[in-house]
């Protein structure tokens, strides 16, 4: 990890708040998943639509399940989906972006740019739907759709940066002594895109969580299990009847998680002075 990034995250109020929020939610999700906390989002009781109480902080839903437990379970889902999509998209984006940037103007670059153009032209919801058809739905189709679509943004940025850096004199001097291209890319170019990758990782995380919620809400994402999107889907009926537990819990947790990520992204962008560059 990058020293400047860590320094910025610990050194600023925004960075500390963001990290704190993420750590808190992460630990909560972990504790619930490993059974350390008595929060079971699947256990049904005959207390339907109970209002908030000491036992059920956000009340219960129409099946009598504890809403807080489901919201914490939603955090676990969000982390799981977010981390998988982010890792995949960043790795793919860095690798293909570096190749395209190094070969800027060549046929490989043109081919990769074409692929990126194709993916960019397919709205994420339709890609997710198509993949859900092909793979029979579920979490893996959703994660695959997001990874397959989100890597493009990172790849474009890495491509531009690598193309910009490859005319730099430190790269020329590596070329002049005859260093093989893959070595130059890995040793001299990719390390100089770490700041882009870190920022993109947080932004991809944000996009993944937002998309997961909407896909699950629409019924092309998570079908069973717990998700803030599913809770929000339930809540659309609830709120018309005056039950706000589901909505408050899901949107509150969602907001805190996104806020944490965005604060981290913002701090990183400031630290790397990327704020000025239009995305």
């Amino acid at each position: 990890m990058n020293a400047r990034a860590l320094q910025a995250l610990w050194g600023t109020a925004a960075g500390r708040t963001g990290l704190g929020l993420l750590l808190l939610l992460g630990m909560l999700a972990l504790a619930a998943a490993s059974g350390w906390l008595p929060l079971d989002g699947f256990r049904t009781t005959n207390l339907q639509w109970a209002s908030a109480s000491a036992e059920h902080w956000f009340g219960t839903n129409r099946l009598g399940q504890d809403i807080l437990a489901r919201a914490v379970g939603g955090a676990a889902t969000a982390f799981r989906v977010g981390i998988l999509v982010t890792l995949g998209a960043i790795a793919l984006g860095a690798a293909l972006g570096a190749v395209a940037g190094w070969r800027q103007g060549g046929w490989l670059d043109e081919a990769l740019q074409y692929v990126m153009g194709v993916i960019d032209s397919i709205p994420i919801y339709l890609l997710a739907a198509a993949l859900a058809f092909a793979l029979g739905g579920g979490e893996s189709a959703m994660i695959l759709a997001m990874t397959g679509s989100f890597w493009v943004a990172t790849a474009r940025l890495v491509r531009a940066e690598v193309a910009r850096l490859r005319a730099r004199e430190f790269v020329l001097s590596a070329q002049a002594i005859g260093l093989p291209a893959p070595l130059i890319v890995v040793r001299h170019l990719l390390p100089n895109t770490v700041h882009i990758l870190l920022v993109q990782a947080t932004l991809t995380f944000v996009a993944a969580i937002k998309t997961e919620v909407i896909l699950s809400f629409l019924g092309i994402g998570l079908a069973d299990g717990v998700s803030w999107g599913l809770m929000l889907a339930e809540s659309t009926q609830d709120v018309l009847a005056g039950h706000f537990g589901n909505f408050l819990a899901a949107s509150g947790f969602l907001f805190l998680m996104l806020l944490g990520l965005n604060l981290v992204a913002d701090t990183l962008q400031d630290a790397f002075d990327l704020q000025g560059a239009p995305a």
């Binding site: 937002k210 929000l232 809540s235 909505f247 949107s251 969602l254 996104l258």
Partner: peptide
């Protein structure tokens, strides 16, 4: 804008509807 970025489209819709 950081706060705005942290709002999900879905949440905004439901909130405004309420």
């Amino acid at each position: 804008s950081v706060a705005g970025l942290s709002l999900s489209f879905l949440v905004v819709i439901i909130l405004l509807q309420i």
